[in-house]
Amino acid sequence: MTKIIEFKNICKEFKIPEKRTGKWSTFLNFFKRKYKIINALKNVNFSIDEGDIVGYIGPNGAGKSTTIKIMSGILTPTTGECIIDGYTPWKNRKEYVKNIGVVFGQRSQLWWDVPVIDSFELLKDIYKIKDDEYKDTLKLLNEALDLEQLLPRPLRQLSLGQKMKCELAASLLHRPKILFLDEPTIGLDAVTKLAVRDFIKYINKVWHTTIILTTHDMNDIEALTNKIILIGKGQILYNGSFDTIKNKYANEKIIQVEFAKPYEKILLNGYELISHDKNVAVFKTKKDTEFHTKAFINEISKEYDIIDFSVNSLSVDEILARLYKEYELQEK
């Protein structure tokens, strides 16, 4: 596999005005501003193989957007080197951007008041796409995303999900080698989410497009890829398979128990009590101990009268939350 994206020692600093707080803050800010330096990216290194789908995850403000902006040539890093498909994105911009497509989740690239198809035609000219190639591409996108009825309508009449479909199509009209998706499923309903995920997988398969997506929805990651890059506080914290992380937490189980009668106090050897309300209690396995159903039943029925219980693994969201906590990324 050839490496298509390489990030070497990329650093990015921002100078932002610092707001004072307190009684006279508004006045003080009015007369004199303080600035502070923010290190949005600290020595970021990673590489991505051609044809991969990679999930780029991290809490808000971790540096995801900055990375995407650097990769798409909008921002120049303070120091460091970045080679994408043989180009440095912020140099020879016009040549480079022909190879990429970008979808910024909540910002549209289509015209608000004119039919979507007209915007597509404009993009065709902007990217100098040949007529027959354009036709083929449009046909393919049309079938995959079911755009037929959306294209003649102005963007402002479309629902959020329909807009996203059109955005995706618009960023792929020129068949880019690399596609950057910044939160593509944000705010979408369940059905559209599935459609978008299927489409991303499909494009990756038929065109071999390299796709980098940022998201807060771990189900996107589960559905699309096994490769994740975790960023926090401007640093890469993990770069590898999602399964490895999942396995790390696979031992942890959550057990919910229903008792025949309410108990005042509940204590169970070897298990951690998370919550307890009258006759329902939730336990967690202790670290590095495996869960055995039989042992659990034996242990609990010694003192308590139980009716029912259920055992669950951590959800992907919980795993992510655990991961953030481990790296102390949680906002205080």
């Binding site: 902006k69 798409s72 040539g73 909008i74 911009r93 016009k94 040549e95 951007v97 022909k98 990429i100 970008v102 910024f104 910002r107 690239q109 902007i126 990217y127 100098k128």
Partner: peptide
């Protein structure tokens, strides 16, 4: 509005 970012990812001056 971020439109400038959008213009910057297009292969036209």
């Amino acid at each position: 509005t971020g439109t400038l970012d959008r213009l910057l990812v297009r292969p036209v001056s």
